[in-house]
């Protein structure tokens, strides 16, 4: 009896697998994604609301696809599985490098002058300074995600600038916590002595009481640089109408519902161009991340 049921299972599997693969929905749904960043909880529910907003504004079905990593967001964008993406500075530069016909159309108001905080566990006895102290050499240090601008690219850039050495040479141990919240949590717990973190995440966690100022504190703030932005594939104009890119930009810039903006979290969106990210591109090339 088991033999037969296995055989039936095999038949069903083979026949439906061949039909299943071909059962594709037509690509007429405008799809977007956002790199995982600060608060990942209920991420889908929150971004589904953004999708609803865009759908209303554009008059086209809009869908949000969640991703787990920066590279997954870039790949999805490159393979046209998403046509619009909320990227970090570095991931946006990479994505536009891989899809030459794509444009940065909007950035957060705060992204025009973004910065990274270097934070330290209280046992290091380091405190806030105007410049990065050389006393950090020989301690343990964690970045955020490997492909993050504020958690990896820019802090590494400033470290190299000051020490003329790679992070592995400067520090006793170097790690990647995976995301900004983890960087804060792990430095606060003492697992790492130092960390580099997105300043927006730091401030919102400080405001929500997740940070104990007696255990972890900011020791240096980097100079400002451009960061997150919305990037769109220009070939959407073929599928969704000739001025679709423009309409998406207008819809994004017009987003003023605080509940929607809180997902990013930004005050509002302002327009952006590819050239705004030239400094990031230069740094990425220098560190061989591009």
């Amino acid at each position: 009896m088991k033999f037969t049921s296995c055989f039936v299972a095999l038949l069903i599997l083979l026949t439906t697998l061949s039909t299943g693969v071909n059962a594709q929905t037509p690509p007429n749904v405008f799809t977007f994604t956002a790199i995982p960043d600060e608060d990942e909880s209920r991420l889908r529910s929150r971004f589904d609301k953004v999708a609803t907003y865009l759908s209303e504004q554009l008059g086209t079905p809009v869908k949000y696809v969640p991703v787990k990593s920066y590279s997954a967001a870039i790949t999805a964008f490159r393979n046209n599985q998403v046509q619009l993406a909320w990227f970090g500075g570095l991931s946006g530069v990479k994505a536009r490098h891989l899809v030459p016909d794509s444009t940065a159309i909007a950035q957060g108001y705060e992204d025009q002058f973004f910065k990274t905080y270097f934070i330290a566990h209280h046992s290091t006895q380091l405190s806030l300074g105007d410049s990065l102290t050389s006393n950090i050499a020989g301690l343990t240090f964690t970045f955020g995600a490997k492909g993050s601008t504020s958690g990896r690219l820019m802090p590494e850039h400033y470290l190299r600038q000051q020490f003329n050495q790679s992070p592995r040479e400067i520090f006793k141990r170097v790690g990647f916590s995976g995301n900004h919240s983890q960087t804060i949590a792990q430095v606060q717990s003492g697992a790492w002595q130092l960390g580099a973190v997105n300043y927006k995440v730091w401030e919102s966690e400080l405001a929500s009481g997740k940070i104990d100022p007696n255990k972890v504190n900011v020791i240096w703030s980097t100079p400002t640089y451009p960061d997150y932005q919305w990037t769109i594939r220009n070939d959407v104009n073929h599928h969704f109408g000739s001025d679709f890119v423009k309409r998406v930009q207008v819809a994004l810039l017009a987003m003023n519902n605080p509940a929607l903006l809180a997902s990013f979290p930004r005050k509002k969106f302002v327009s952006a161009t590819n050239d705004d990210y030239a400094p990031i591109k230069k740094v990425a090339k220098a560190i061989k991340l591009l």
């Binding site: 009896m1 088991k2 049921s5 296995c6 039936v8 299972a9 069903i12 599997l13 439906t16 697998l17 299943g20 693969v21 059962a23 594709q24 929905t25 690509p27 393979n79 046209n80 599985q81």
Partner: peptide
């Protein structure tokens, strides 16, 4: 259960997100 496997397989094929077009 053995006899449920074909049912589960059908349900799984029906349920999974196939929508991403193969390009």
């Amino acid at each position: 259960k053995g006899w449920l496997i074909p049912v589960y397989l059908l349900a799984a094929l029906w349920y999974l997100p196939w929508q991403t077009p193969l390009q």
